[in-house]
């Protein structure tokens, strides 16, 4: 057994054992971390591989949440199918969000996602016969084969299993020809298009995959919380997702997952700071961009290089590209 395999085994063991060692609230946080893990994967596909910034991922999250909830509540669709339904709905809207890619270049696409997010939130809010509008919408507990999953610990394990599948899929995706083409487009759009890579097609694929993953997250999220209201899917959430991705690290799937864990746990650690939380996120974001461009996921490596005289090339190779893009968006 290689050290890597041992490490992988231990990590998985810890992730599986965790809910049995802690109380209900921590189980809830674990479930949230796994749920955000899906968003992290989605951000990785779009931003890490595709180099595209979205200011509208809260909308895909909302669509997954509301979509699956409406499917279960109104149409009696079983929970697992409703989750898939939520992913499909979010994915379709991902394609719609990317449609401007057929016409516009660069950051206009990010602005377009922002527009879509605002429209989606407004429609969900106004369409109160379906979504409950201001009152919000009750979501039943998740159930599997007729059994209600009452315990958040068990629910977490189910989400974790799905997350592992998603990780496996995203790993294959990034190694696939499609994934390489997407990276090529990000790396040099001109040359990639000259090579015959269709920009619009690939960006649409990236958006669809990313939105669908985020939709799955939303579906799990709604069922965990038991209640949805449109106030929880604002621009601020979209920005938080971006922050989470950068802090975790854009360069790898590991970074995406760390980002998810960070986003779930940070509010608990920063609880006492209350309103200052957003400020702290902001500072952390800047600190990450300046000092740790590979995100938290590169922290072990950064520490290792600090203590070893031998200089290695950093494993997170492409984050700086995205960080540049991110800072351009601010302009």
């Amino acid at each position: 057994m290689t050290p890597k395999a041992i490490f992988a085994g231990l990590t998985l063991l810890a992730a599986v054992a965790a809910p049995f060692l802690v109380g209900p609230y921590a189980q809830y946080i674990l479930a949230m971390a796994a749920i955000y893990g899906f968003v992290g994967l989605g951000m990785y596909v779009l931003l890490g591989l595709g180099g595209q910034i979205s200011l509208g991922h809260a909308a895909f999250w909302a669509l997954g949440a509301y979509g699956s909830a409406v499917l279960t509540v109104r149409f009696g669709v079983p929970f697992p199918l409703a989750v898939i339904g939520g992913a499909v709905i979010a994915g379709v809207f991902g394609a719609i969000a990317a449609m401007p890619a057929l016409r516009v270049q660069g950051h206009y696409l990010a602005i377009a996602t922002l527009g879509l997010a605002i429209v989606v939130q407004q429609v969900l809010f106004q369409w109160d016969s379906v979504t409950g509008g201001r009152q919000g919408m009750l979501v039943p507990r998740p159930s599997l084969f007729g059994y209600e999953i009452d315990d958040d610990g068990h629910y977490y394990l189910i989400i974790l299993a799905c997350l592992l599948v998603a990780i496996w899929l995203v790993r294959n995706f990034q190694k696939s020809f499609l994934g390489i083409s997407l990276k090529a487009l990000r790396s040099s759009p001109i040359a990639a298009q000259a090579a015959g890579v269709g920009r619009a097609y690939h960006l649409i694929v990236a958006f669809v995959v990313s939105a669908a993953l985020t939709g799955v997250s939303g579906a799990f999220y709604g069922a965990l919380l038991g209640q949805l209201s449109t106030d929880s899917f604002t621009l601020l959430v979209s920005l938080d997702f971006l922050t989470m991705a950068v802090i975790g690290g854009l360069g790898s799937i590991g970074g995406a997952l760390v980002g998810g864990i960070f986003y779930a746990v940070a509010p608990e650690i920063l609880r006492d700071f209350q309103q200052a939380q957003q400020v702290i996120y902001g500072l952390l974001l800047i600190a990450c961009m300046r000092l740790l461009p590979g995100g938290l996921a590169s922290l072990p490596h950064a520490v290792a290089t600090l203590f070893s005289s031998r200089r290695k090339s950093p494993p997170e190779n492409n984050s700086s590209v995205e960080l540049e893009k991110l800072s351009e968006v601010g302009k």
Partner: peptide, 26 residues
């Protein structure tokens, strides 16, 4: 692809370590 797996695992471990203090059953 070895890099991505290694960081993946490191990441998960770092995350778990980070989250442990918050997870005490109260």
């Amino acid at each position: 692809m070895t890099i991505s797996r290694r960081t993946l695992l490191k990441g998960t471990a770092a995350g778990l370590a980070l989250s442990l203090p918050a997870l005490r059953p109260s």
